[in-house]
């Protein structure tokens, strides 16, 4: 084990040469490649950062847009709800009006039905009353009553005005009809004479008189001159009373 100065010096030179060689052919090229790669990575990182920032901006824009859409949707929903509420109220009011109208119509119909029912009942009551009165009067009717009714008839004929008599006359002249006299009981001679005189006075002319008996009149008589009819019987009076009562309703 001895120190060789030649080896010592040559080894120093060898090592320094190796340092230079490795620096020239190993470290620098590798460091350059690593540096280039690092620059590339940094560049890509910068691009990625830029892309990320753009993506973030886009995300923010989309989020803002989404928020706007949500707000618009909320406003539209509110408006729709308001419209629906208004429409519901309108329909409800229309329905209420319709129901009210139907109710009123039903009330009117009901009132009419009641009125009609009442009218029918009254009419029925009148007719029954009339039948009852007729039945009652039938028992009390007789020639005396007929005489009194004849007197009333004669009085009525006398009270006819000229304006009322003229159409009668004209009608009789045109039709040349028969004067038909219906009585409940047979008319006596004087009764017939009084009656014919009164009629002659009204018609100003003689016509054939045709006498008929009809017990349905109960009492009194009915004179038919063409289309004109003059009643003075219990039956006609009762009918007239019933019609008058119905007309009064």
């Amino acid at each position: 084990m001895e120190l060789s100065w030649s080896t010592f010096l040559l080894e120093i030179v060898n090592f320094l040469v190796l340092v230079w060689l490795l620096k020239r052919f190993f470290y620098k090229p590798l460091q350059a490649v690593i540096s280039r790669r690092q620059k590339g990575i940094e560049s890509r990182l910068a691009e990625a950062g830029k892309a990320q920032a753009e993506a973030r901006d886009l995300k923010q824009q989309y989020e803002q847009r989404l928020e706007n859409w949500k707000e618009e949707a909320r406003q539209a929903r509110d408006k729709l709800q308001r419209d629906i509420h208004a429409e519901r109220q309108k329909l409800q009011k229309e329905l209420e009006d319709s129901l009210q109208k139907q109710r009123e119509q039903a009330e009117i119909v009901q009132q009419r039905q009641q009125h009609e029912l009442r009218r029918q009942m009254e009419q029925q009551a009148m007719e029954q009353g009339s039948q009852f009165a007729a039945k009652l009067l039938q028992q009390g009717a007789g020639p005396e009553l007929q005489q009194r009714l004849l007197d009333l008839l004669l009085g009525s004929l006398e009270e006819l005005t000229e304006a009322q008599r003229r159409p009668l006359r004209e009608q009789m002249q045109e039709t040349a009809a028969v004067v038909e006299i219906v009585s409940a009981f047979p008319l006596e001679g004087p009764q017939r004479q009084d009656l014919e005189e009164a009629l002659r006075d009204v018609l100003q002319q003689d016509y054939p008189y045709h006498y008929i008996e009809d017990p349905k009149l109960l009492s009194g008589l009915r004179i038919t001159v063409g289309p004109w009819q003059l009643g003075a019987s219990v039956r006609d009076e009762l009918h007239a009373f019933v019609k008058l009562a119905q007309a009064a309703q």
């Binding site: 030649s6 080896t7 060898n14 190796l18 060689l21 490795l22 190993f26």
Partner: peptide, 25 residues
């Protein structure tokens, strides 16, 4: 200057490293 086996081996190592570096780079 006496060239020993140490020096020659060192040269061989240096040559090998240089060639390897050159081929690699």
């Amino acid at each position: 200057v006496h060239v020993t086996s140490t020096i020659v081996t060192s040269w061989g190592i240096i040559l090998g490293l240089w060639l390897a570096s050159s081929l690699l780079c």
